[in-house]
Design a protein around this nucleic acid. Structure first.
Lengths: 224, 224
DNA sequence: GCGGTTTGTAACCGGTCTATAACTGACGAG
DNA sequence: CTCGTCAGTTATAGACCGGTTACAAACCGC
């Protein structure tokens, strides 16, 4: 479950991200409004936590922009009980509102509640080129071939590679994306996962056409 | 739009009701938990505002009881800073949580947001393909076969799957939809419920044609 | 309150998935 | 050439998942 946190207060940003990661979420961090929008477009997170007071693009503006294209749950943060803020946030389509300072448990409980409610809505498949990933069914379809069943980890791996298709993605990035946290010794896991995925999706697993190795850099997904 | 307010503090009760009426809602008042439940059953309000600290039946208990039969939006009220309360309320399936004292505008903004969100949820169709659910009779009819009697939980499971027929629905979603709240050990419940439902509705329960498993993802209802 | 039904809890099983380790060959630096 | 690193492969143990059986607890109609 990916959550994007946007706050210009570096310390708070790191703290919130840490709390989320501790609780098993994958946290994406943005230090200002424009980055938030960029990351939102690139990563399609499942929930947004936006500080209202950000220089440049405020949380309101980010929320408004996001709401043009998406109904993803949005939680707004602000320093004090600025009532005008609350009203405006809810009117802009935010789903929840939290005053700083807040406690970890409060934040996590509300995040959980929002996600639970959001899950009532339907996820749509993501596709690029001849690859189509169905997040609901946990399957991958290549061109007109029959769909291939994927495990949870395989799905996350391919989802992220697909989001960056055509570009090499470093092992480190994949590790944090797929497993979330973890130490250094986990190159093995990725190696394994790639191997198993290739067995499933490649016509000739030893000469991969889709899930390619970029020596020294990581992996890349070819979609054409 | 009917809103039920339950609080043992007479003054606050009247105040909240007054605020709601001022804003164009119809306010129902309950001075304790049992009255709240009675009025809820009799009037089917569109939203509940429950004080947690009520003598006799607490807001928690009222919420829990209501959630057994209904997914109506619930907002909980309590004195500031009881974090345990917040967590517990959200876990019991409450939709929002407000600390006393609060301002009229805050309350109204959140009420408005809850109602708007509730309205977005789609009324689920009661039949699809060769499956027809009778919500009053608690029965399922498959094609021209005689109707099958269902229990309350089986009905809710099938109702939700039917509303999303053709799409895989995750176990988590089903859990919150059928049971509402709850925590860890509940994969067992779903497993059981699915098993029992299959015994009833499938021609060959070991090879389900209707209530299918989507490995790693959840379950799906086939209606054709 | 009684008896059947419905729901919750636990244990078990087989299959799949994941983590971990060991071995192999390719490659580049020294 | 040799060593170390990197990526691929093979092997395996344990965790986890989903289905099944069994039984206890709660509930419901009478």
């Amino acid at each position: 479950m990916k959550i994007l946190v946007a706050d210009d207060d570096r310390d708070l940003l790191e703290l919130v991200a840490f709390m989320l990661v501790q609780d098993g979420y994958l946290a994406l961090k943005a230090g200002d409004g424009p980055s938030a929008l960029r990351i939102f477009a690139a990563e399609a997170p499942d929930l947004l936590i936006l500080d209202i007071n950000m220089p440049g693009l405020s949380g309101f503006q980010v929320c408004e922009e996001v709401r043009r294209t998406s109904r993803v749950p949005v939680m707004m943060l602000t320093v004090r009980g600025e009532e005008e803020d609350l009203v405006r946030a809810l009117e802009l389509g935010a789903d929840d509102y939290l005053n700083k300072p807040f406690s970890p448990r409060t934040l996590l409980a509300r995040v959980k509640a929002l996600l639970r409610r959001a899950r009532l809505e339907v996820a749509s498949p993501v596709s690029a080129g001849r690859l189509k990933l169905d997040l609901e069914e946990h399957t991958l379809q290549i061109g007109a071939q029959p769909a291939i069943r994927l495990t949870k980890l395989e799905l996350r791996l391919l989802q992220f590679l697909l989001a960056n298709h055509g570009h090499a993605v470093s092992s480190d990035r994949l590790l944090t994306q797929v497993w979330g946290h973890r130490g250094a010794g986990d190159r093995e896991l990725l190696k394994q996962l790639v191997h198993r995925a290739r067995q499933k999706i490649e016509r000739e697993p030893a000469n991969p056409e889709i899930l390619q190795t970029v020596p020294g850099a990581g992996y890349r997904l070819r979609v054409d």
